[in-house]
Each structure stands twice: as C-alpha cells, then as structure tokens.
Amino acid sequence: MKFYNRFIRTFQDLPDHTTLLVHSLSGCLLHCYGCHNYDEIIANTPRQYKTKEDLYNYLEKSGFLFDAVMFSGGEFLIDKIEDITVLLEQVQSIFNGKIIVTTCGIYNTKIKHLIEKELVDGIHIDMKLPYHVLDPKEDQKIFQDIMGIKASHQLIENLLESIDTVIQHNSPLDQVRTVKYPILADTFFDEIRDYIEQRKSYFQSDVPYYLNQFQYV
C-alpha cells in the first residue's frame, strides 16, 4: 500500500483529539464535485510516496504525539481487505491510540469486516446525496454532477447499508457527514438530515451528524 508523502497532524478532523491523517494513494471510484484531493492524489498520483513500513516506523518513533490515526483517501477501502486487515492489525500492535477510517460507503462488506474484527474505533462516512429518494435512472445527472459516477440500484443499496452499519456501530468516534454542495438546493440536505435522524431513532443510536460547509479552493 502507498500513502501520500506527508503525514498530516490535524486537530479538526476528530474533535478533542490530536490526529495523524494518512492519505491512501490507491485511488477512488468517485470524482466528487470540488474534491480537494482528486487532482493531486487520484488523477496525478505523486511519484514520491510513503510505504506501510514508513508508517510503522513513524508511529513507533512519534506515535506518542498523537492519540488517533485517521486513514483517508481517495478511498482507503478500495484496497484488498486482506491488505487493509494486515495494515490495521500492525498499527494496533504499535500504536495505543484510536484508529479511524473515512469512507464514501461503497464497500459495505469491508466496513462490516473492520467493525466485526475490532480493527477500528470509528468510521467517518459521507452521505453525499439523499440516496433513499433518488432513482438511479431518473436522477442519473445528479449522481454524475455530485459524485462523478453512474449510479445503480445496487450502488444505492450498498451506500444506504453502509450508513446503517455505522449508525448501528454507535461508537463515540463514528460520524455521518455531508458536504453542503453549493449546486444543490437546501431540500437535498433537509432530506439527508431527516433520514439520518430517522435511522438513528430506529437503531437507538447517538452517532453525530455533521453538515459541513463547502470549501472553495
């Protein structure tokens, strides 16, 4: 596995924690509107990169400076689940802090695997659109404009199941979040918020939901 050549220290991505942000260079199935990482990490993958051994060494020497490691992308879960498992098991063996994975939600079975094997302390999942009220045929342009993909019923099913998986996990370090894309009407975000609240009520979950403002580059 390859990672962005700079591990980033952040105080914002995980409230009340000092976090080491690690970006995977394995790619992403999406090309989301205004994605900050697409050009540098996905479309033009850097020639210089860090390996998993670099990460292990860094954590062994400097892990005391952080109380969490967050794996992001691109899409961190795009790699083989066997490789992801080995990586996270090794990180757990040398790092005493929390492990967070951010994901778009396409890989539901991988999310379940990480939770079942207790390889993560939290999942941060993006709900980019109100999937539950969109039709992959009639609303294809919306999926293309926001997520850069051709939607299908199976894709929507996977995304919604991943949302439920995270809500059911109900860890204090889980998050469901949405970017307030400026090209969408407020009704889209109202639908997402209401859906999340309904699912939280159904599963008796306290997972926080965040509506993040779109950041122009």
Rank of each mutant, 00 (worst) to 15 (best):
D206Q: 10
L160P: 00
I123N: 05
G122D: 03
H36E: 13
F214E: 10
I125D: 01
V101K: 03
G105H: 12
P182V: 06
K50L: 15
K141L: 14
H132W: 03
L29R: 14
L134C: 08
Q144M: 13
R9L: 04
Q198V: 08
I192M: 14
V101Y: 06
E191L: 14
I100A: 06
F76T: 06
K200A: 04
T18C: 07
Y56A: 03
P15N: 10
S201L: 07
S205W: 08
L88R: 00
Q48S: 13
K200F: 03
F189V: 12
T51L: 02
G73Q: 07
T102M: 05
K80C: 00
E118K: 15
Y195F: 11
R47P: 00
V207E: 05
E157P: 00
F64M: 03
N108S: 10
K137V: 14
I163L: 14
D79I: 04
V166F: 01
Q92N: 02
V101L: 01
H31K: 15
C28E: 11
P46H: 11
R9G: 01
Y202R: 10
V120H: 06
L119K: 03
Q215R: 13
T103N: 06
F214G: 03
D135A: 09
D174T: 08
E118H: 15
T45C: 09
K150L: 10
G105I: 13
I8E: 01
I142G: 04
G27E: 09
P172W: 01
P15E: 13
K80P: 00
I94V: 13
S24P: 01
G34D: 12
H23M: 13
Q92P: 00
N158R: 13
D126Y: 00
T85M: 04
Q213R: 09
V120W: 09
D13L: 14
L29N: 15
C104K: 11
I125G: 00
L21E: 07
F143L: 02
Q92H: 07
D39W: 08
F95W: 05
E53K: 08
N158V: 03
I167F: 03
I167K: 03
H113L: 09
I99D: 07
I78L: 14
K98A: 05
F188Y: 15
C104H: 10
K98S: 06
Y195N: 08
D139Y: 07
K180M: 12
P46Y: 11
Y4F: 14
Q168A: 05
H169G: 04
E116W: 02
I167S: 04
L159Q: 12
Y58A: 00
T187D: 15
Q48Y: 10
Y131D: 02
D174F: 05
Y107S: 09
Y181V: 07
D174H: 03
K2R: 14
I78G: 02
K150W: 09
L184C: 09
S24T: 15
D83M: 04
N5L: 00
